[in-house]
Structures are given as C-alpha cells and as structure tokens.
C-alpha cells in the first residue's frame, strides 16, 4: 500500500525585489524558498492515513526540482514520510504545470501508488494545474480542492468533500487509485523540527533524470511560456465619506486634481 505525494519548493517574495535581467521572473536573490503551503496539508493527510493504519502504508514524496529543492523534500520526509524521489534535468527550468505533470506521470507509472495527493495549487504561481493534469495524463479519477477525506489503505474507494462556489459543498465517492488535490485546512499539519529535517538526510531519496524515466527534453515541452513578469503600476483608491454634498465636492476635487487643473 503506497501513497504518493507530490511537493513543490516555492518562492516567497520579499517586499522589495528586483526582476531578473530577462524580465521573465524575479531575481532569485529576492526570494526565500519554502515548501509549498498546500503541500504541508497533503503530506499531513497522507501521514494521518498511514498512522491510522498502524503505519501499514508507505508514503513516498516526489518533487521535480534541482538540488536546492532537497530542502522541501527533507521537510516532508522529516514529518514522517518514508522515502523521497527527486527528478531533475536542466531542461525543466522553464517547465509549467503540464510539463511537470508529464514528469510526475512517469513517476506514478514507476511507483504504482494506490493514491496520489498534490496540493490544490502552489503558493507562488497558483495555477492549480499540475495535479489535475497528472490525473488527465494517467486517465485516473480525480478530485480537486479536497477539504475532507475518508480513506484507509487498501480501500477501493475514498469518500471526500469539496467546497463549491456560493457556499455549497459536495460529498463524492471516488474510485482508487485516484489523484486528489488537497485544500488548505483539511487538517493541522505538524511541524518539522530542524533536527528532524537534518536527520531526514538518512532517509532514502532516489535522484532520477529524465532518462531514468524514459523521457526526453522534447517530450516535456511546456504548454505555455512566461513572456514578461512585472509589477503593475499601483492604482489608487479612496473611500469618500460624508454627506452627499461633501462627497460630490470631494469627487470634483479629485477629478480636477487628476486633470491637473
């Protein structure tokens, strides 16, 4: 019995930053790296299932990223996951969610897990594509933004709850294996102590290349490409209060100001 959890190392932006010379991303000096907030929850969910089953399940963490992303992997391992897999090739530098999903699909084929968890989205790019794209590539049942889950290792189905627009919720049963993208708040993630993270270095991590997965750089071409990244000019807002007459005169003032009168 095996649960595979995909995790991403994300960038947390400083409040003052500069763009990269090519204008397509922030200069990496200006952000700090961290495990994606959502992935704390998906890892926790997998661990809770494992613990409820008396540890009778293996939790495998997968990340696609260079050596620096080992930190994210180790954080997840420190929490109690059994082993890790890190896939990297320099051609993945510009990968989008779909490209990542292609890589992950190969890992899933290799590992044959009974369940795959991803975060609902990543806290830096927030496109919320990867998990669902992975499900599509595998042809597996999927549910996005899961906020409650009932599942025990070995079950053929899982019961889950999703929040819908307009305050609705739905409860659904899903066939396993499935890909679920996990929403914040589904549980209370545990903390990984620095000591635990260091000791997680002893846990096995497979470092795989595209070759190992039978992929070529061409087969993972991103479906999209960032052209420019920039901080839009700040707009202004002012709440005008007072009587109707006061509001009108303030409005007139602003118009005059803006027209430079």
């Amino acid at each position: 019995m095996k649960i595979l959890v995909t995790v991403k190392q994300v960038a947390a932006l400083d409040d003052e930053f500069e763009m990269r010379d090519d204008g397509r991303d922030v200069d990496e000096d200006f952000f700090e790296e961290d495990l994606n907030e959502f992935d704390h929850y998906s890892v926790e969910e997998a661990l809770l299932i494992k613990e409820a089953a008396g540890d009778d399940a293996e939790v495998v963490i997968v990340t696609v990223g260079d050596e620096d992303t080992d930190d994210a992997l180790r954080t997840a391992l420190a929490k109690g996951a059994d082993r890790g897999i890190r896939v990297w090739d320099d051609s993945l530098a510009d990968a989008d969610g779909v490209a990542i999903a292609r890589v992950l699909a190969k890992v899933v084929e290799r590992e044959q897990p009974d369940m795959v968890f991803t975060g609902a989205q990543s806290s830096d790019f927030g496109s919320a594509v990867t998990g669902m794209a992975l499900a599509g590539l595998m042809g597996w049942p999927h549910a996005a933004v899961v906020c409650a889950l009932e599942y025990s290792p070995g079950d053929n189905t899982a019961t889950l709850r999703r929040e819908l627009e307009g305050g609705l919720e739905e409860i659904m049963t899903i066939r396993c294996p499935a890909v679920l993208s996990i929403q914040l708040g589904i549980n209370e993630p545990r903390y990984a102590s620095l000591r635990g993270i260091k000791q997680a270095k002893q846990k096995p991590v497979d470092e795989l290349t595209l070759d190992d997965l039978g992929l070529s750089a061409d087969s993972i071409a991103p479906a999209s490409r960032v052209r420019r990244m920039y901080a839009p000019e700040k707009g202004q807002a002012e709440l005008i209060t007072g009587s109707a007459a006061e509001q009108a005169s303030r409005l007139a003032e602003i118009i005059k100001e803006l027209r430079g009168m």
Binding site: D14, D15, Y191, S193
Partner: peptide, 27 residues
C-alpha cells in the same frame, strides 16, 4: 511536531530567515 498551530509559522520563519517575525533577511 504537534503544538499550537500559531507557533508553526514563527518557527518556520526562524528556520528560513533567522527571525521570528516572518520577515526576510534582507529587511
């Protein structure tokens, strides 16, 4: 790893940037 959830962001910030206020080193 099980304690007041309010403490977690602080400790994570301390791990990442050496301060308890969730600020970057640069700041």
């Amino acid at each position: 790893g099980e304690f007041d959830p309010m403490l977690q962001p602080t400790l994570r910030s301390l791990q990442k940037s050496g301060n308890s206020l969730g600020e970057s080193k640069r700041k």
